[in-house]
Amino acid sequence: MTGHDPDICEIGANEIPRTGLHACSLEFRIDGRILFPAVEFHAGPGEIVSLMGPSGVGKSTLLAFLSGVLSPGVTASGRVFLDGEDITQRPPENRRIGLLLQDAALFPHLSVEQNLGFGLSRRFRGEARRKAIADALEKAGLPGFEKRDPGTLSGGERARVALFRALLAEPRAILLDEPFSRLDTDLRAQIRRFVFDAIAGSGLPAILVTHDAADAEAAGGPVITLQGVNGPERPG
């Protein structure tokens, strides 16, 4: 056994912190094969936890589980708590966990303004709505970019738009899936700093998946390294 015990989350439920994103005893299997030994971590408000490990170890699987979009072929055990609430069974759209992906995933058929509007809460109407988007672009260092086609943006610009689109949706936590891996080295540090500062400023717990030690170091939070398990799990 790997020391994994799903009930441990049940027993310890009272001790789950009331704020931040807490993952308890997460373990994944594909065709009966365990991906990596059970992990447990906690990201407090404004804190960034970095997950590292060789490619294929299951970092993205873990993120998919946290955001609720795990592929059907994977079986998972463990619990996820957000601000003390168990959100393990919730559908992704009700978790309020923002997602920042490798290729930014801007919607190509919508303008920059419409992309941001997609994220922005319905609380903002009319003029307030227009202003909220303009403010976000201002903060992103992209003033006047409202009508731009996302296809014409540089990698760094895309990353910043995607970040603010995620933040405008008012998430309670944010997940970053190698968001800087496609950026040039010199641009990379700059965008990274920008994103990390924005997250710190928002006070959101964040999980960063990366294979770049410099990313993890810059994030400043705890670093968890996932090690693959070889071969199927054997009883005893």
């Binding site: 998919a64 955001s67 609720g68 979009v69 559908p91 992704p92 759209e93 009700n94 978790r95 309020r96 966990i97 923002g98 997602l99 992906l101 490798q102 290729d103 995933a105 919607f107 997609f118 994220g119 995607a162 689109r165 995620a166 949706a169 998430p171 997940l175």
Partner: peptide, 11 residues
Amino acid sequence: PALHAAASMGY
């Protein structure tokens, strides 16, 4: 990825 991003924004 686009569907996951949309889901993360509450859709």
